[in-house]
């Protein structure tokens, strides 16, 4: 599904060259739920941006669903993002001026579906996240957990093969975080591949495999049994980072 070999990303300023990723190797199989953890500045976000085709890289090979993405132009990358990848962001990134229906509609518009198809998908996805009855609400009228559910509905609406989640529970309290995690696991059980970036090791334990990133390299891989997960706790404090 996702295959990175020796992917290298260098940030250059006039004075210094920073290797955000160097010879990064990762292989994610179809249907996997992989978490990526690591300390701040380890390259997690860079990995996420490259994996999500949000940023280009300097060296190495990245195949997404069997397609080498290294030399795709902006429009091709946009289409690939639209068709194959679903994004879930830490701060939800809902569009404040649009109601839930129109928010979930955004990627479908770029996909070029006709009106009835879009409506069918939006309703189904909002149903799935339990917000079908609030379709005409604005994001500001929802709680954080509900907003993230809308974001998940938006990510799923295009029926992507691959979900990329960036600290999806980072702005939520533990109870909401738990239910969002449960939702993601359900989605994964349906067959969607998920890669989730988090700095919280306790969350990582929920996944099937955890990758620990340090200094732009994969430094450790942990396979986790599918047995009973530990309860997720003490995540809510992370919100303070973002003031």
């Amino acid at each position: 599904m996702l295959n990175m070999q020796n992917v290298t990303k260098i940030f250059r300023t006039d004075l210094v060259e920073t290797r955000a990723l160097s010879d990064f190797n990762l292989h994610v199989k179809e249907g996997e739920f992989v978490t990526v953890t690591g300390p701040s500045g380890s390259g997690k976000t860079t990995f996420l941006n490259i994996a999500g085709l949000l940023e280009s890289f300097d060296d190495g090979v990245y195949d997404l669903d069997g397609e080498n993405v290294r030399h795709l132009n902006d429009t091709q990358r946009s289409r690939l993002r639209n068709e194959k990848i679903g994004f879930i962001f830490q701060s939800f990134n809902l569009i404040p001026d649009l109601d839930l229906f129109d928010n979930v509609d955004v990627p479908l518009r770029y996909r070029g579906f006709n009106g009835s198809e879009r409506k069918r998908r939006i309703e189904r996805c909002l149903e799935l996240v339990g917000l079908a009855n609030r379709m005409k609400h604005l994001p500001a009228q929802l709680s954080g957990g509900q907003q993230q559910r809308v974001a998940i509905a938006r990510a799923l609406a295009g029926e992507p093969r691959f979900l990329l989640a960036d600290e999806p529970t980072g702005n939520l309290d533990s109870k909401m975080a738990h239910s969002v995690m449960q939702l993601l696991k359900d989605i994964n059980d349906e067959g969607t591949t998920i890669v989730m970036v988090t700095h919280d090791p306790s969350l990582a334990r929920e996944a099937k495999r955890n990758i620990f990133v340090k200094d732009g390299k994969v430094s450790d891989v942990t396979h986790i049994s599918a047995s009973a997960p530990e309860p997720i706790a003490s995540i809510s404090a992370s919100g303070a980072r973002h003031v």
Partner: peptide, 14 residues
């Protein structure tokens, strides 16, 4: 918002 749209698949033209 624009970044999000781009991430969700909006091309520069859109």
């Amino acid at each position: 918002q624009i970044g999000t749209r781009r991430a969700l698949g909006a091309s520069q033209v859109s």
